[in-house]
Design a protein around this nucleic acid. Structure first.
Length: 565
RNA sequence: GCCCCCAUAGCUCAAUUGGAUAGAGCAUCUCCUUCCUAAGGAGAGGGUUGCAUGUUCGAUUCAUGCUGGGGGCACCA
């Protein structure tokens, strides 16, 4: 429906430009969407204001001229019932009720595909997120990154991108050695040997448990008789395997899927780091100073140039990371999105710089921060500290409040904003809980459909209304609540595109709340199943279209869609 | 000291690439159920969008400065 209006407007604008001898600049665009105030019509357009910039004429006069042209050459088959000039230059379109409602038939026809678009045009996107070092269980912070990244992956797929998700596994650095040494120290301690615990070692109980596992399930006290170097290495490998197992288990429980776990180690094995630095050098962004190798990241807006190879001959963290991103480029991904914790804030400019050198245009690079979460219990913040080993793990969270609430709370705010997570609210199965508000709407519709099927007046079932959808009289859905709900449902795809463009899944969560609110409002104002069979049919169609949007939307958020509550 | 982010109702947050009278939820108060799930709905109160200047037909949105809060400034990862 919107497309039809767009075509009409485009034709008139073309016509107008010819009479004015005006040429539209590149990237010229205008808005066409339902206005906040439904009194302003079903679709509102700001084209006159935009044209004013080009032709330097008054918006109101332009709009008046456009209206004149519109009336002069009315498009055949136009769904527009009335056009109105208002607010100093807005052109408002009022659609015929029966045309407005055709979106409901569209929703039924497309069903699980309703909301899909080709916005991404098949672009190959690679999403990297979580990428937690396997030095402990996943934390709440990782959980939010997981939820945001996974939702975005689902949304990008739905909006026409070829999406690949990856977890970058730092299995080669100093923290790995520290983990190995920590486990080795606990191993010795458990066997009654004297051994000081490493100064910056990992204090958490899980380290001791891993050491105990090695003793009980694998080696008994055998490691003591091996060369220390080998024993430590064994501890490290065992710990990584164990921790990654637990991490993957958490992610699976959270319904977060990764297509690939990319090991940092493999970069060294393939000499990929040398290769990457050679590329930088070839492009002229590498230089030597004070015995170290530097990347000239300041050419791309970084504060200072960055060392990639220390004077000791070791690589910094940045070097393999550049190699990793070169691999993304060489594997053909033309859009990349990374989600990191706030501690990586200052690291963004240098990696963006690197990605640009490697060949990515700036607009294809989306490196974003997912801010921290503070848990609240009884109005008080819950203390979390990884250092002391007393953190609240992601597992504890989703086991306490459930995966649905966990995922929803994690994505319901813009990811760059700090999140307050009210544990009591998330567990409460009540009106105050936003995730239940959505699920309740879905369950209500399911229940409504069941009721309709066994209704005394024998109205058509929802399934039946689908097959006979063409016979539904859409004009009957004329109340403001019904129009509002229809308008809301028709915007599903717009919001998904917006979420894709900004890489912000919270926009979908926000939209679904609108859908649920519109439905609840409609439901409480109008009885769906009545003696009036035609009206019942139309309203059931509307309810079922709402169900489809809610289901598709919740699916994209990775949240279940209960039939009963 | 330098750089980045944030500042909207008492609280938590929205406001569609700059659009019409800045909206929800919570909290406070009032009301709605012989009838499809009241886990819902209707209404009231609550705002100089931190301050100032500028750009614009139009600014919560953009620019500059200031105030207040958070984070970052490694040959760490």
């Amino acid at each position: 429906m919107k497309n039809k209006i767009e075509n009409i407007i485009d034709a008139v604008v073309k016509n107008y430009c010819e009479t004015q001898n005006a040429v539209l600049p590149d990237g010229f665009s205008y808005d066409l969407h339902p206005p906040k105030d439904s009194q302003h019509g079903d679709l509102s357009c700001n084209i006159a204001f935009k044209l004013a910039k080009v032709t330097r004429q008054k918006p109101f006069e332009i709009a008046a001229e456009l209206m004149r042209l519109l009336e002069q050459k009315p498009a055949k088959d136009s769904p527009v019932a009335k056009t109105e000039l208002a607010g100093g230059g807005f052109i408002n379109f009022f659609l015929r009720k029966e045309d407005l409602g055709t979106v409901l038939l569209e929703i039924h026809k497309q069903d699980k595909n309703y909301g899909r678009s080709d916005f991404g045009k098949g672009k190959k996107a690679i999403l990297e997120f979580v990428s937690a070092n396997p030095t402990g269980p996943l934390t709440i912070a990782h959980g939010r990154q997981a939820a945001v990244g996974d939702c975005l992956a689902r949304i990008l797929k739905f909006t026409g991108h070829a999406v690949h998700t990856e977890y970058y596994l730092n299995d080669a650095g100093r923290q790995m050695r520290m983990l190995a040494q920590s486990v080795w120290a606990r191993y010795n301690e458990l066997l009654g040997m004297e051994m000081p615990f490493p100064e910056d070692g990992y204090q958490g109980d899980y380290v001791r448990e891993i050491a105990r596992d090695i003793i009980e399930k694998e080696k008994k006290d055998g490691l003591l008789r091996e060369p220390e170097e080998k024993a430590v290495e064994y501890c490290g490998l065992y710990a990584v395997k164990h921790l990654m197992g637990s991490i993957e288990e958490d992610l699976a429980k959270m319904r977060v899927h990764f297509d690939h776990y990319f090991s940092e180690k493999t970069l060294y094995a393939k000499k990929a780091v040398e290769h990457a630095l050679a590329v930088l050098k070839e492009k002229g962004y590498l230089y030597e100073s004070e015995g170290a190798l530097w990347f000239r990241s300041t050419d791309f807006g970084d504060d200072k140039d960055r060392v990639v190879k220390k004077s000791t001959g070791e690589y910094t963290y940045l070097a393999p990371d550049i190699a990793y991103h070169l691999s993304k480029y060489e594997r053909g991904y033309n859009m990349l999105a990374n989600f990191w914790g706030p501690d990586h804030h200052g690291y963004i400019p240098r990696l963006k710089a690197a990605c640009q050198v490697l060949g990515y245009p700036p607009e294809a690079i989306h490196i974003g921060i997912v801010q921290l979460t503070t848990l609240f219990r009884k109005g008080q913040p819950v203390r979390m500290s990884t250092r002391a080993g007393e953190f609240v793990s992601l597992r504890e969270l989703y086991e306490e409040v459930g995966v649905d609430a966990t995922r929803f709370f994690f994505v319901m705010r813009r990811q760059e904003s700090h999140l307050d997570f009210d544990l009591d609210l998330a567990k409460e199965q009540s009106q105050e809980n936003p995730v239940f508000y959505l699920q309740y709407a879905h369950a209500r519709i399911a229940s409504l459909a069941k009721y309709a099927e066994q209704g005394i007046t024998a109205p058509p079932s929802v399934a039946g209304s689908r097959s006979k959808a063409g016979k539904v009289d859409l004009k009957l859905l004329a109340s403001s609540e019904e129009s509002e709900l229809i308008g809301c449902l028709s915007q599903f795809s717009d919001y998904l595109i917006q979420a894709s463009r900004t890489t912000e899944p919270y926009r979908l969560a926000d939209y679904l709340r609108q859908v649920a609110a519109c439905f609840h409002k409609f439901y409480s104002h109008h009885r769906v199943v009545t003696e009036d069979k035609e009206l019942t049919k139309a309203r059931l169609l509307l309810a079922d279209a709402t169900r489809i949007v809610l289901r598709n939307g919740l699916e994209l958020l990775g949240i279940s869609q209960p039939e009963t509550m």
